[in-house]
Nucleic acid binder design. Structure first.
Lengths: 193, 193
DNA sequence: GCATAAGTGGAATCTCAGATTCCGGTTAGC
DNA sequence: GCTAACCGGAATCTGAGATTCCACTTATGC
């Protein structure tokens, strides 16, 4: 591969990641091309089709998330603050949609990406351990689970157009509100599953 | 207007309300027509265009919401449980998207509907009083407002396709989680506005 | 420096979904 | 039994976006 081509490939994946974060997995190829500063044709020379490009974005994302979770875990003494930190990290501007994009990847895009699936499972496993630890430490209520956390992360880090403007502007505010609701003792009648 | 035509008009608005609740304000005319058991042509004989029909749905919705809020208010001794009840009511299956649909109505659809705008303002005003009352009664934390509640209602009662399946299946679970986070004393460091 | 394979931009093409129009065939209501 | 209102839904019109194509550039090996 020629040096300039390799350089462009990098720009493309990066641009795709950004645009997908902003506009969701349905982001148009042209928007990605423009962001990368290349023509659509170039996208198609590197990726057979839209799905392949989106899948590449998925790989990029899952690793970013996993790294952040690890960092939060290492950086905090107790599990609860690790969770708090991680959630805050995801809510930071520019990071939004990261998690949703992951959740939204169409099945047919993921189906054969065993590496991606494995990475995501590892990440969830990791996250789950943290939640259980927090519950064991008595800082998090027991009637909620990682899946609740993940879903809420997905909901609030949605592509901005799909959220009420004020929520999109500060998802962290709402995510923290929900974490407050998950603290040990916060349960009202214990929402049943 | 002929009797059968009047009957159809009723079926159309009702069907539109249902379909909009399920698929959002962008629901296709054909889906509405099918639900109402009429042809698309019939929709256009009653409403000049899509927007007019959607606006009619908006009117229908805002009144339903207002009534429910009043009912919750009358039915509860304290403001907090009135809020709790109202939120639970909105979260009930079949009601979902009601609130979002309202929030999503495109500006150009609403612009001239002063009656609608007034009704909505009245509803918000009502809701706001309830929130302030709960705060005065010391049951709700002071650093959140009606708007937070409304936004969250919108987010969780979104059209099912836009939410992670488990959330769409039981938005109430998550709304209650949020309410728990809004109870007096739940605040962690007090999310700043 | 030059030949040339690799790379490029972006207009043109293809698809598809959904709004809107139209009209031959039906009915309610007198 | 007449006929103005109605109806259903096929046909048409549009816009958005994926994908293809090709004339034009530019690294790179010699």
């Amino acid at each position: 591969m020629r040096a300039d081509a390799r350089r462009n490939l990098g720009k493309i994946v990066e641009a795709a990641a950004e645009v997908v974060a902003e506009r969701g997995v349905g982001a148009p190829m042209e928007a990605i091309a423009k962001r990368a500063g290349v023509g659509v044709g170039t996208l198609y020379r590197r990726f057979p089709d839209r799905d392949a490009l989106i899948a590449a974005v998925g790989d990029h994302y899952i690793h970013t998330m996993a790294d952040a979770l690890d960092a939060a875990d290492r950086g905090s003494a107790d599990a609860w603050s690790a969770i708090w930190d991680f959630v805050s990290w995801v809510a930071e501007p520019g990071r939004a949609a990261l998690s949703t994009a992951l959740a939204d990847l169409p099945d047919e895009v993921i189906a054969h990406r065993t590496e991606f699936i494995r990475a995501r499972a590892r990440w969830e496993e990791r996250f789950d351990q943290l939640v259980r630890r927090a519950q064991a430490e008595g800082t998090m209520r027991g009637d909620v689970g990682v899946q609740d956390l993940i879903h809420l992360l997905n909901v609030f880090t949605c592509h901005p157009e799909d959220l009420p403007a004020p929520v999109a502007a500060d998802p962290g505010r709402y995510l923290r509100l929900m974490l407050d609701g998950m603290k040990a003792g916060a349960a009202t009648p214990a929402p049943s599953r």
